[in-house]
Amino acid sequence: MEPPEHDTTSPLRLRTGGGETDTARQTPAKAKAPRSWRGRDYGLVILAAPAVILLVIFSYGPMAGLVVAFQDFNVADGVFGSPWAGFKNFEFFFTSGNAGRIMWNTLFLNVLFLAATLGAGVVLALMLNEIRGRVTKRFFQSVIFVPYFVSPIVVSIFLQAFLAGPGGRGGLVNDFLGMFALPELSWYTEPGPWPWILTVVKVWQLGGYMSVIFLAAITSIPEEVYEAGVIDGASRAQMAFRITVPLLKPTAAILLVLGVGRIFYGDFGTIYAIVGDNGTLFATTDVIDTYVFRALRTFGDFGTTAAIGLFQSVVGFVLVVIATLVQRRYARETSIL
């Protein structure tokens, strides 16, 4: 009905379908809306008010609070009274020598996590798709979805059982290595393998979740698509990799865009719960978010940490816009998530 208006909110159309506020379905409601509104009814205002107020305070408030990044903030003077500092806070961060390392760690870990969880999700969905029988399939699906429910803290305790046993003992992995007479490793003092350990943890936690999303996409592939394959005598594997996988690209693209938008945000929950304040592992695991958290906690340096936060938000925003545009160019028909 109003194509130009439609276009102004175009980034929205990518989202849950929620972005698509304005397609066919709303047209009937639109017709009678103005009268019921102007006449008597403030009901909608009442319904939206709580969420709007909460968003203003807890989402938009902190955005405004980013002015702290340009201040020499101190608690006594508050946000409004603290003296201005220009770009000094940014300078302090970028010249501190930590910036390069933590930004690299953040990007590297997030790329690893994203690639690994997407890959695991696709493979698991393909394999789940082979399983016959409703009950069996649902059972497997439920089992691999379980890890999604536990908090990073619990994951951390699980991991300790494998990598560091009680009372400084070796843990299960070392017991296992010992069985083959391989040298044991003191995992929590060895930064090298941690990016991979954390990737395994992410796959463990999110593999099932991702597979549900991809399996839903597989389910919506019309059956006729496979008939030609069946007639030509394609094997199940060929059908999975030649027919299903290409059809999963749009779903993967959207998850990728979402992931890229968050690529500059370190996975604070998982990393801090697992690594904590274990300084020996910082070389490979310290990301922007854990750095900011520690800086705030130990030095109480509001200005620099806010500057990093602002930098993160801006880069994240730019990345998500670029990713959205690229994604729309290549797969505009997609609307999952």
């Binding site: 980013l66 705030l296 936060g309 994240g316 816009v321």
Partner: peptide, 13 residues
Amino acid sequence: MLFTGGLVPMYIL
């Protein structure tokens, strides 16, 4: 969803 204030402003808030 795209833009957040981050830790510090939330902490101050």
